[in-house]
Write a protein that binds this DNA or RNA. Structure first.
Lengths: 187, 187
DNA sequence: ACCATAGGTTCGGTCATTGAACCAACCCCG
DNA sequence: CGGGGTTGGTTCAATGACCGAACCTATGGT
């Protein structure tokens, strides 16, 4: 056999015939799922991802490019004069919500944290079940109808403006209003 | 602030207050979710993981150790005389099934593959819904009652004995019978 | 003219992953 | 008793990915 030359290492799982493996080739790299999570929470701008995630700039640029190429985010110009871009999650990205939801539930249940955020059905206020369904209505809740409610145990006065914007209840996908404090300024 | 020295890079997402991030610190590394998938499929032995995944030996050893330490796998001796170990998935690991299931569904739907495997409710033969529920019975199917059925599009004559064992229908968690062909022998 | 903002790219250093080789029990076979 | 096979690892040099910091570009505000 000749072990197809080229990418010997990296993001692919060459020998696997499995849709889980295919999925992981797309979203399995470090930081990628957190970028998608933030996009579901309404984060759209390069600088906001940067502030909220604490990800190296180069890595963020690479992830945004890959996710755009894979059709999970869509890059678009939201302002011409000083050219400004934003990255908006697509249907394909939104379809990852049940996965992220069940991963979050698993993380909370098995690593004993206080509940940091709660997710409710906007129509009735019921807390979602483990796969994003509404126990009261008996239906899978469309992502735009999910409300994220911050819980206790969440730092009440975070440093970055994105975390501050996420401190009050809001619907998924609804863009965060970027108070435009300071750019990347740390410390 | 002083950014706790020590692990500056690696597996942690230091600034994130989020159970998704906590979960990813545990199962977010390369290969980890595939090891867990295989464990759900009934793979238990070091050599079988090796053969089926094509993972470097050192990485496999590291992942098995981490997963054992995190309580996702349990290492146990299944034979004394020549001391032999096996890694069996725990409740905590089994709880990842809905996550893996929804990830697999996403991978198949968005990256247009033929259906490689199907998952059915053993009691009634109905194909599972996207989160591992049975549409006919209306309940979430316990993992031991899920039957994995190989589909078309799966290589009918794979090289390694593990893939061959996974070619016929079987329940999740049921250990694969390792025909004990040859050890790691490739070529 | 000067500073700030948004969205990047470049670069040297460090960490993780890779493939191949080696090791160590123990068994079976002759 | 010696040789080979199986299982479950460890070690090692090389390569790629990730890291933080610095720099760049375009624009707008004052």
């Amino acid at each position: 056999m000749v072990t197809v030359d080229g990418m010997a290492l990296g993001k692919d799982y060459a020998t696997q015939e499995c849709s889980i493996a295919r999925a992981l080739e797309v979203i399995g790299e470090r930081w990628t799922l957190l970028v998608i999570r933030d996009a579901l929470y309404g984060v759209r701008r390069y600088n906001d991802f940067l502030l909220h995630l604490g990800i190296p700039r180069a890595v963020l640029a690479a992830r945004l490019q890959t996710l755009t190429a894979e059709g999970i985010l869509e890059k678009r110009r939201y302002q011409e004069s000083p050219p400004r871009e934003e990255y908006v999650i697509t249907e394909r990205g939104i379809a990852l919500w049940p996965t992220l939801r069940s991963l979050g539930v698993w993380g909370r249940e098995h690593f004993a944290e206080t509940q940091l955020r709660r997710f409710e059905h906007a129509d009735c206020g019921t807390e979602l079940g483990p796969y994003g369904e509404c126990p009261a209505c008996g239906t899978v809740v469309p992502v735009p109808d999910v409300v994220m409610v911050p819980g206790p145990g969440l730092n009440p006065d975070p440093a970055d403006p994105v975390s501050r914007a996420l401190l009050r209840p809001k619907r998924l996908l609804e863009p965060i209003e970027t108070t435009t404090g300071a750019a990347v300024q740390e410390t």
